[in-house]
Design a protein around this nucleic acid. Structure first.
Lengths: 329, 329
DNA sequence: AATCATTTTGTAATCGATTACAAATTTCTG
DNA sequence: CAGAAATTTGTAATCGATTACAAAATGATT
């Protein structure tokens, strides 16, 4: 592969002139520009990013931290980030942390090593202390999960409100005994969704029972199956379920189908996230839709701003309640 | 962020010595090594990958081409690639082509630009001509989809055999009217799976009917729903379905459930790929499991070899038929 | 034609590492 | 302890681009 020197030689100009042509600088006469362009074509030259990156001390790579690519929750966010990044001639590096601090370190080092210019973190288990440290000297944006009162800009939705509306939807369908399948409340969104759940119940003077709130360890399908098993063994069984994630809801659905009960006649279910599979289950799942794609675009745009050195403000986006078969009795 | 010069100065040695310490070269006395290590710690120094990469003319980045990250089919392969890459101190760049030639070009250019050292392509719609051109001067490995008789090394399974076994399974359950939901036969795997399907039918002297072979445009859930709708309108309805992908099978399942028929009593279904969701459906789905994770590892290992300049041989891995509720009448 | 302003081009330093080769230091040997 | 051998360290070139500044070429004005 030819380098800039060889192009310059072939075109009979200096490397500076070639570089000017490459970067569309104004001050090149049409005549020499043509000579250079011909030389580039003849030699089949492609500028090396390695040289360029070193000189510009940027890699035009951004890191996207997430616990696992297998989680369908992230796919559309990633698409949004990706599209925005490419439009700004950046590339994204998907970084699976597996909630493993060692992996996380590898990625943080890539930033310090100048192998990447900025980070978008979607990992709720990320080491916030380290991330904050990193954010002091490098552009960092949080997406979806964030730190209340923290200094890192974020993009998210109003989880409390979304949960409130989801539960209210169940209430207006006539349900009075509504259970919550929540994840670990060490996560901010879990606390917010619980709070929305309780606000709706209080507003309608419905009972809140501790045994109707089930906390799962993870957000996996199996955790949902487990949760519904416990809830169905209660003396006072709920007639509706609000699960804080679709995978949990789909697990619950599977559990209910297995126990001979019918959704939504015996039990209504609302999930959260509107993952693509929520539309493929039987019955299809009512769920809260986050504007995933837009979240991704927004996060990427904030990061671009931050990398330009501009000040950025956090963004809260709108959500939607998608009503499907699992609540249409 | 400090650079190697500053470290050298602080330690009172030359940059060459610092570099030697960084790269664990043998010929550094313990005394100076200590001095350098202290200086590194004091200055909180991290070597810049940009400088290192330029000098070594490598980026230690590998490209993974795939049509879409949203497809659960790829997640475990990606995991395998990722793990192997990290173990060899490479990073992977997930490249969504969206089957869009322009996007593809961007990624091919990254290789030419030295922004990445090699490619693993899992994109069945990839421009094979361009990929072959690229492969002449850069390391390329195909994963899952491949070119018969081509010169690019690949990792895959024996699709024909897997299809044969899946259909044989349906036959031994007593089914005589077996439909195939295939994707576009421009794809090699589609032709191979059809061939396996036909081999099984022939072996048991069962009828093959053109109307029992349905070709979908894409591998999406909706295509499966559409397919089963057509098949159920036939005069001579099949009693079993073999779908060449789980998403199609799950679409078919949803369609059957919706029509009031029962799986597996009225219709048995076998899918292909064992995506995680195939275990969450109701009923759970019998499917052919490809060793996804291992495929990823193998592909990455082949690429590592190829990047070292070694000759590499293609690999065919074993598959499994996972029997679940959708064929357990 | 001489002078000055403007545009175009070239020279050389620079980004931050690695490494061949030379130089300096230490260790070994008789 | 002199000199050879082995080890450690330093000097300077190098990877491939960008860009400040200087120099050259062109054009405008009188």
């Amino acid at each position: 592969m030819a380098n800039i020197q060889q192009v310059a030689q072939k075109a009979g100009v200096s490397v500076a002139t070639v570089s000017r042509v490459l970067n569309h600088a104004a001050s090149v006469s049409p005549k020499t520009r043509l000579k250079v362009e011909n030389a580039i074509k003849e030699l089949n030259y492609e500028p090396s990013m390695l040289g360029r990156n070193l000189r510009n001390s940027e890699s035009r790579l951004i890191l996207v931290l997430l616990p696992s690519v297998s989680n369908p929750f992230y796919t559309d966010i990633i698409n949004g980030i990706q599209t925005t990044a490419i439009a700004n001639s950046y590339h994204i590096l998907l970084c699976e942390t597996d909630s493993n601090p060692q992996r996380e370190n590898i990625y943080f080092n890539m930033i310090k090593n100048k192998l990447a210019d900025g980070v978008i973190s979607m990992d709720p288990t990320v080491n916030m202390q380290k991330l904050n440290e990193l954010a002091e000297s490098h552009p960092v944006i949080l997406c979806s999960e964030y730190e209340e009162g923290g200094s890192i800009p974020y993009v998210t939705i109003d989880s409390e409100l979304a949960a409130y509306q989801a539960v209210k939807h169940l209430i207006t369908l006539g349900n009075e005994k509504i259970a919550l399948i929540n994840s670990d409340e060490k996560f901010l969104y879990a606390r917010q969704r619980r709070s929305g759940y309780e606000r709706a119940l209080k507003e309608f003077n419905l009972p809140t029972r501790a045994e109707w709130i089930y906390h799962t360890k993870d957000l996996e399908f199996q955790n949902g199956v487990q949760a519904i098993r416990m809830l169905l063994e209660l003396e006072e069984k709920p007639t509706a379920i609000f699960a804080v994630s679709d995978t949990l809801a789909i697990g619950a659905l599977k559990g209910i189908n297995g126990s001979g009960l019918h959704v939504p006649n015996d039990l209504a279910i609302v999930g959260f996230d509107n993952i693509s599979f929520s539309n493929m289950t039987n019955p299809t799942l009512t769920t809260v839709s986050q504007p995933m794609y837009k979240m991704g675009c927004t996060a990427a745009n904030l990061l671009m701003q931050s990398m330009k050195g501009e000040q950025v403000e956090s963004v809260v986006l709108d959500h939607d309640l998608i009503i499907r078969e699992s609540t249409m009795g």
